[in-house]
Amino acid sequence: MAKVVSINISEIKGVIKTPVAEGTFKEDHGLVGDGHAGNWHRQVSLLANESIDKMINFGVPDLTPGKFAENITTEGIVLYELPIGTRLKIGDTIQEVTQIGKECHKGCAIKNKVGKCIMPTEGIFTKIIKGGVIKAGDSIEVL
């Protein structure tokens, strides 16, 4: 079963995020209080724990949820294989996949600190269709 491992937040974009007990996600905005949120197509970023494990296996130590600046760390779902337009029910929310991967910007704090970034190939972005609360342990359902 696919589930949420962690909700992660930071006030500014492109930095390591801090895990929180739960997050409030607002329609057409994203995670309330997060620097990544706003009225655009990349409101929420998601990365699978399995992708983080790949980096650990490459020899990158001390990787935990939020280190790749993802808002939601997941488990049990291959995010980067979901077609754009796929809708997901996560906690109380409904989200729509808008982008797979991204180009790392120059001076990316994640790449500089971790040495490599997996977000460009395995991270995904969504927009919030229906707002609500998400917490660790919530299920993820492909609609």
Rank of each mutant, 00 (worst) to 15 (best):
Gly23Cys: 04
Ile118Ala: 11
Met55Ile: 11
Ile12Asp: 04
Ser45Phe: 04
Cys117Glu: 05
Ala136Ile: 02
Arg87Asp: 12
Val44Cys: 11
Ser6Leu: 06
Arg42His: 03
Gly107His: 13
Lys54Asn: 12
Asn57Ile: 02
Met55Tyr: 15
Asn112Ile: 14
Asp138Lys: 09
Ala48Gln: 09
Cys104Met: 03
Val133Tyr: 13
Glu11Lys: 15
His41Phe: 14
Glu50Met: 02
Gly132Ile: 04
Ile52Arg: 08
Pro65Val: 00
Met119Phe: 01
Met1Tyr: 12
Cys108His: 03
Asn71Trp: 06
Leu82Cys: 10
Arg42Ile: 07
Lys89Gly: 13
Ile110Gly: 03
Phe58Met: 12
Thr86Val: 01
Leu143His: 10
Ser10Phe: 03
Gly76Tyr: 05
Glu141Trp: 02
Tyr80Glu: 14
Asn49Leu: 15
Ile9Val: 06
Thr121Lys: 13
Asp138Cys: 10
Asn49Ser: 10
Cys108Gly: 09
Lys3Ala: 08
Lys116Cys: 14
Gly66Asn: 00
Met1Val: 07
Ala2Val: 09
Thr24Asn: 07
Ile128Asn: 05
Thr24His: 12
Ile128Tyr: 07
Ile9Asp: 03
Asn112Cys: 06
Asn71His: 09
Ile9Glu: 07
Glu50Val: 09
Pro83Lys: 13
Val15Glu: 13
Pro65Thr: 10
Ile90Trp: 06
Lys17His: 06
Ile84Pro: 11
Val15Trp: 04
Ala69Gln: 10
Glu11Thr: 09
Ser6Gln: 09
Thr18Arg: 14
Val60Lys: 11
Lys67Ala: 10
Gly85Phe: 11
Phe68Asn: 04
Val133Cys: 12
His105Gly: 13
Asp62Trp: 14
Cys108Ala: 02
Lys89Asn: 12
Pro19Val: 06
Lys116Glu: 05
Thr98Gln: 11
Cys117His: 06
Asp53Met: 13
Ile12Lys: 15
Ile128Trp: 07
Ala21Thr: 14
Pro19Met: 02
Glu11Arg: 11
Leu143Trp: 02
Lys111Asn: 15
Lys130Val: 15
Pro19Thr: 10
Val133Pro: 07
Cys108Ile: 01
His29Tyr: 15
Val142Asp: 00
Met55Ser: 08
Ile56Glu: 09
Val97Gln: 11
Thr121Cys: 03
Arg42Ala: 05
Ala109Trp: 04
Ile94Asn: 02
Lys67Gly: 08
Gly131Val: 01
His29Met: 00
Gly59Ser: 02
Ala37Gly: 03
Gly137Asn: 00
Gly101Thr: 12
Ile77Met: 07
Thr64Met: 14
Val32Tyr: 04
Lys3Gly: 04
Ile9Cys: 12
Val15Leu: 05
Asn57Ala: 15
Trp40Thr: 01
Glu70Met: 08
Asn8Ile: 12
Gly107Pro: 06
Pro120His: 05
Ile16Leu: 10
Gly66Tyr: 00
Glu22Lys: 12
Gly30Val: 11
Val60Ser: 10
Lys89Ile: 14
Gly23Pro: 05
Ala21Ser: 15
Gly137Tyr: 09
Leu31Cys: 10
Val142Cys: 02
Asn49Pro: 02
Gly30Lys: 14
